[in-house]
Design a protein around this nucleic acid. Structure first.
Lengths: 121, 121
DNA sequence: GTAGAACCTGACGTTGACGTGAGGTGCAAG
DNA sequence: CTTGCACCTCACGTCAACGTCAGGTTCTAC
């Protein structure tokens, strides 16, 4: 599969895929002409990368953790890092939950100004 | 209260406080000599700003929502925006929860390589 | 064999929330 | 009055995950 197709199928941009390779998150074979050629598994991998990015991990962290996430084998240090990241995410969830609750309270209690709103511009 | 004390008490940097003012998130009176002079309520306000930032809102969004969050009075548009942001946060929590679960699964199932780890450097 | 889509490698631009000097001023203490 | 710390205003630097443009090459279809 070439880069354009992988981009369409995974929903990320061509530029992003090249960036992933630059960051050593994603490998590619090359055709004799020098164009990238991806195996089917690349699709899963890109989705995994996206998930980890969405979780707020940096590319540096992702490149460290990808091997054990995809192979299921980790060094003690990698396991520790996994736990650290999971806990970081959990803490972040706490923050967001508090913030959402706060906004929820505001939403429930605000007085909506329906009068004297005409000349606001 | 001057800027240094507010910074220490709120835990944000002096630079950040000036940035908040630049973004119209935070006002300050000035001494005859031109130095910023904050009232006690500024502390709460800074903490509120931090909470909203931590929730992933941009300064532009915060400046739009701060009035109604602190006064309890909103226009219909502001209320809508509040709901949009709360839902965005909720969606983000979903993402993070999935990611944390994924990492949790990996953590439970990885084989920790305790052998042949000696010559890794 | 040729048009043109898709690809390639640099390399600079973007965005947000500040960090970090540079160069000058305010103010409390001795 | 002068030391010196806290403060002031520019104004450029940072970092991550790409966007975007330039200038050239490969591949596919006719």
């Amino acid at each position: 599969m070439r880069i354009g197709q992988l981009a369409r199928r995974s929903g990320v941009s061509v530029r992003a895929l090249r960036y992933y390779e630059e960051q050593r998150l994603l490998e590619s074979a090359r055709t004799p002409g020098g164009q990238r050629d991806y195996p089917e598994e690349a699709l899963e991998r890109v989705q995994l990368i996206q998930d980890l990015f969405a979780a707020g991990l940096s590319s540096r962290t992702v490149v460290e953790l990808l091997p054990c996430v995809s192979t299921g084998v980790a060094t003690p240090a990698m396991l520790e890092q996994l736990i650290v990241e999971r806990d970081r995410i959990a803490a972040r969830i706490q923050d967001l939950t508090r913030a959402a609750a706060k906004l929820g309270l505001v939403i429930e209690n605000v007085t909506v100004a329906t009068v004297a709103t005409a000349a606001q511009d």
